[in-house]
Simulated scan of single mutants.
Amino acid sequence: MTDTRPQNNSLLIVLSAPSGTGKTTICNRLREVRPDIKFSVSHTTRPPRQNEREGVDYHFINGERFEAMQKKGEFLESAWVHNHFYGTAHSTLKAHRDRGEDVILELDPQGAASIRKLKLDAVFIFILPPSLRELERRLRQRGTESEEKIIERLTAGKIEMGQYRLYDYIVANHSVEETVETLLCIFRAEKHRSSRFTTDCPVIGDILKSD
């Protein structure tokens, strides 16, 4: 069978979700079923949570170093979220793209809006909770934050969900397996957009040569 897939056709996927929606669990499952899809490791000034690893979940740095990187223009995007800085380094994304890898950027809507403004060829996906009541239940079930923090995250979540038009796709996370399968369907469909095909594709190249 002739391979009609585009060559060197790496996807940049921007994935966002309000805190408590289950994004970490979804991303961990994606890593298991599709290890070929890479995750861009962001820099943050917040302390690591339990089981988070340096260089795997985030690059954990102090505020002084973060600000120094900002001044040097080392970040593709950066944002102040829940009282901490987060940023995606140009070098991190470039390394993935140079290797032709599909890469996921886990960003809040501030970061997603910054990527939109850069007009990068990216696919934007927003994960929603099934309902606000379920979001609150999940936040409380974690048992890691005070009542004040829970209310703060719920308020922020409502604001973030109001920015859904930034995204190309909306996926409600009713179950992890269903959500992961939906995401994989989106990835597969985006890989076959006609705009992603070039003359490097054998069939397209042959057609153009015959014209």
Rank of each mutant, 00 (worst) to 15 (best):
M1F: 11
M1R: 12
T2W: 12
T2C: 05
T2I: 15
Q7L: 14
Q7G: 13
Q7M: 11
N9P: 11
V14R: 08
L15K: 03
S19W: 12
G20H: 04
G20E: 05
G20F: 02
G20P: 03
T21C: 11
T21H: 05
T24P: 05
T24L: 06
I26T: 06
I26G: 01
C27G: 09
C27F: 03
L30V: 07
R31E: 03
V33L: 00
P35F: 02
P35L: 00
D36K: 03
I37A: 01
K38T: 00
K38R: 03
F39A: 00
S40Y: 00
T44G: 08
R46Y: 07
P47V: 10
Q50L: 05
Q50H: 10
Q50I: 10
E52G: 08
E54A: 09
E54W: 13
G55E: 13
V56R: 06
H59N: 12
F60M: 11
I61R: 05
E64N: 14
R65F: 15
A68G: 00
K71A: 04
K71T: 09
K72Y: 05
K72N: 06
E74S: 11
F75W: 02
L76E: 10
S78R: 06
V81H: 13
N83Y: 14
H84M: 11
Y86R: 06
Y86F: 12
T88R: 04
A89L: 12
H90V: 02
H90N: 14
H90E: 12
L93C: 09
L93K: 03
R97V: 06
D98L: 10
R99M: 13
G100R: 10
E101I: 01
E101V: 00
E101S: 07
V103F: 04
I104S: 07
I104W: 02
L105K: 00
L107S: 10
P109H: 01
P109G: 07
R116C: 00
K117L: 10
K119V: 01
D121W: 00
D121P: 03
A122Q: 02
V123K: 05
F126R: 06
L128Q: 10
P130E: 13
S131E: 03
E134T: 04
E134D: 15
E134R: 14
R137K: 15
R138Q: 13
R138N: 13
L139A: 09
Q141D: 13
E145M: 05
E147Q: 15
E148A: 15
K149V: 09
I150Y: 11
R153V: 06
I159K: 06
I159V: 14
I159L: 15
E160S: 13
G162K: 03
G162T: 10
Q163R: 14
Q163D: 01
H174G: 06
H174A: 01
S175F: 00
E178C: 07
V180N: 06
L184P: 12
I186Q: 10
A189W: 13
E190F: 09
K191V: 14
S195C: 14
R196W: 10
R196T: 08
T199F: 07
I204D: 08
I207V: 15
I207H: 09
